[in-house]
């Protein structure tokens, strides 16, 4: 179907240029999922309420459901697919897997992209800082606790510490 109203644009996503045509009112979320097949980014509300669609644009976490795709042209977009280094998971991903911080896994990509930006700015965030940072990412499975612990575990590992999850967080008190 040809559509004269579509625009042709080139995005840089996860360091790779992608050219595609889309209606100018399309959000970054829609273009990522529907045009570029990058379905790791999820939709939970499409109203900017849940954080599931969080990606990074020029290193800043944004809600891709409220972000016009056209506004991302010429910027660096990073999605969950760009987090791992080849087959090697990002330390955040490893920590999330170790602790079971991803249950259903639907909010996980958005949480990871938010947390990754935090750890770039703050190598040693306090529990309160982690909570503040993730306050816009809803999760219905975990009760957030394993997510907090995983972010802190990843932060420690990224600082070069040989850290393992605490006994209480795995076996209980």
């Amino acid at each position: 179907m040809s559509d004269p109203d579509k625009v042709l644009a080139t995005f840089v996503v996860n360091g790779e240029p992608h050219q595609c045509a889309f209606a100018p009112h399309k959000t970054l979320l829609e273009v990522l999922r529907e045009e570029l097949d990058l379905c790791g980014t999820k939709h939970g509300c499409e109203l900017g309420e849940c954080g599931a669609c969080t990606v990074q644009v020029d290193d800043v976490p944004v809600l891709s459901c409220l972000y016009l795709a056209l506004d991302a042209v010429g910027k660096q977009v990073r999605t969950v697919e760009g987090l791992a280094n080849g087959p090697t998971l990002h330390p955040l991903q490893d920590a999330f897997a170790d602790l079971g911080a991803a249950q259903c896994g639907y909010c996980t990509p958005g949480v990871l992209m938010t947390a990754e930006a935090l750890l770039r700015d703050n190598r040693c965030p306090s529990r309160d800082e982690v909570k503040q940072c993730l306050a816009g990412n809803l999760c219905r499975c975990t009760g957030y606790l394993k997510i907090f612990e995983a972010v802190e575990l990843a932060a420690a590992r990224m600082r070069g510490e040989d850290k393992q999850p605490s006994k209480e967080s795995i076996y209980g008190s």
Binding site: E81, A84, G100, L112
Partner: peptide
């Protein structure tokens, strides 16, 4: 979990 890797990788 057996699916942990695919979940955290999106």
């Amino acid at each position: 979990k057996i699916d942990a890797r695919s979940k955290v990788a999106g």
